[in-house]
């Protein structure tokens, strides 16, 4: 077992929620650790160690990814969006409002990951139907809600988009 300080750190530059960061990181640092520990963005959570639960979901260059399954160095040069970046100018994202309105969260631990998966889905498919929504959050575990209200919350936003609202 080699000691960690034997491996030289790597300098990475990336944009998170619209701000540029340049940091020296251990090559083995996971993106989720980078976000939580280096940037203090603790909204992105960790729920497992086998890429199953999706609590760590963020977007990298617009695609939803499990940030526990990517090294921070792999995001070098990329654009990351986390739950903290959803609210714009004091205005919550419609998905955030809808989750609250439809009681799509209980403990709230899965919520940031769910929001990021849903957000990525609706960016590509604004009027997504229930089937597409289920698929989009198939990699996000929620232990509290039984998914019913999460689906409703996402569906409500998708329906609004469908009505051209």
């Amino acid at each position: 077992m080699s000691t960690p300080d034997a491996i030289p750190p790597v300098t990475i530059e990336l944009t998170v929620n619209g701000r540029k960061y340049c940091r020296e990181v251990e090559p083995r640092l996971l993106l989720v650790e980078f976000l939580r520990e280096e940037l203090g963005l603790t909204g992105t959570h960790i729920g497992c160690d086998t890429s199953y639960c999706g609590a760590c979901t963020v977007q990298l260059n617009g695609a939803p990814i499990k940030s526990c399954t990517l090294f921070a160095v792999q995001a070098d040069g990329g654009e990351v969006l986390t739950v903290e970046g959803l609210e714009q100018d004091g205005e919550l994202h419609p998905l955030q409002k809808s989750f609250s309105e439809h009681h799509g969260l209980q403990c709230g631990y899965c919520t940031p990951g769910m929001l990021m998966s849903a957000h990525a889905l609706l960016a590509g498919n604004p009027g997504a139907d229930r089937k597409a929504i289920k698929k989009a959050i198939a990699g996000n575990v929620c232990r509290c809600t039984g998914y019913q209200n999460i689906l409703k919350a996402i569906e409500a936003v998708a329906n609004d988009a469908g009505e051209g609202k």
């Binding site: 909204g43 955030q96 709230g108």
Partner: peptide, 19 residues
């Protein structure tokens, strides 16, 4: 009624132990 708790949780600003 929708919940008071939600405001911080939907923003990713809850305070869980690991945070």
């Amino acid at each position: 009624l929708s919940r008071k708790e939600d405001g911080r949780l939907i923003r990713g600003q809850g305070l869980f132990v690991d945070d």
